[in-house]
């Protein structure tokens, strides 16, 4: 039995400790906001927060996730999360939307650590999140907008 602490709740899972956290979240806990895109930590669609870090859940083994603080897109909260989601909506960022859970999770981590990121900071931090629809320009603008709304300068 593995105990997963997700979105503030503990879940007991009878599963292989090598199973990627992604599939436990999606298939066993039915939290489908976290997406499968590549399975190899190349696209960022599966990004969740583990102890505040923007982890790729497809590359986190269940055993390694046990007992840690995991948050998925469904349960993000706080001023940074609100600013990010708000900016995403204000700027009509989404297109197909499939990558956006991961984009938002990474953006929240970025802004939590760097409240006033430059374009270069954004590029460096968002590098691991692919968007095939090409919404990058708006993602960048939305991160700046979030920073501004949070009291940063950008």
């Amino acid at each position: 039995m593995i105990t997963l602490k997700i979105n503030g709740e503990s879940h007991q899972l009878d599963a292989d400790p090598q199973m990627p956290l992604l599939w436990a979240i999606r298939d066993h806990l039915n939290l489908t906001g976290t997406k499968y895109g590549c399975g190899r930590a190349l696209c960022g669609a599966c990004t969740v927060h583990i102890d505040g870090e923007a982890a790729r859940s497809c590359s986190v083994m269940l055993g390694d996730a046990a007992g840690r603080d995991i948050t998925t897109i469904e349960a993000i909260e706080g001023p940074v999360a609100e600013a990010v989601v708000g900016a995403w909506r204000e700027l009509n960022v989404v297109q197909c939307g499939y990558c956006q859970s991961g984009q938002i999770m990474s953006a929240i981590t970025l802004l939590s650590k760097n409240p006033d990121p430059s374009d270069e900071d954004i590029d460096a931090s968002m590098e691991g999140n692919l968007c095939r629809c090409g919404t990058y320009q708006r993602i960048r603008a939305a991160i700046h907008r979030s920073a501004r709304n949070l009291g940063g300068r950008s």
Partner: peptide, 16 residues
Amino acid sequence: VAAMRCGNCHSPSGNN
């Protein structure tokens, strides 16, 4: 850096 940390993908417990 912020949202691109080694540990986001690489696990201390070994190869995935």
